[in-house]
């Protein structure tokens, strides 16, 4: 898949994954890399940026094995941002689908 395309999509995925429950970085990185091929390391800069922009709040929590994990929780602002992105995404994909369907019919 195209690199530019993936970058934009990554943001939506991260936000949506963290909306159902608080997630830690590794969990998000792995979940996304399972679905499509992405440089896992670039998930963390994205998480940092989204935190900086106020879409995530973070906290540390002890885990049963290993060092404490950093959890990401979606803020009120993050919810707004996510809904906006999902809206953009659906209108974008439906437009692309329409073009594909029309093209295939010919």
């Amino acid at each position: 898949m195209n690199v530019q395309f993936k970058k934009g999509v990554l943001e939506v995925c991260v936000l949506v994954l963290a909306s159902s429950e608080d997630r830690y970085g590794y969990e998000l990185a792995v979940k996304i890399s399972e679905k499509f091929e992405v440089a896992v390391g670039s998930v963390y800069p994205l998480l940092n940026r989204l935190t900086q922009e106020g879409y995530f709040s973070t906290y540390l929590k002890e885990s049963t094995e290993g060092p404490p994990r950093k959890y990401y929780r979606l803020t009120e602002q993050g919810w707004h941002h996510m809904r906006l992105l999902i809206k953009e995404w659906s209108s974008f994909t439906s437009a692309v689908n329409e073009i594909i369907e029309e093209g295939m019919r010919l």
């Binding site: 590794y26 990185a29 896992v40 390391g41 963390y44 940092n48 290993g66 060092p67």
Partner: peptide
């Protein structure tokens, strides 16, 4: 920042 990657290696190992 580095902690994120440190943890990543740790969990990848696990």
């Amino acid at each position: 920042w580095l902690y994120d990657y440190y943890i990543h290696f740790q969990q990848a190992y696990e």
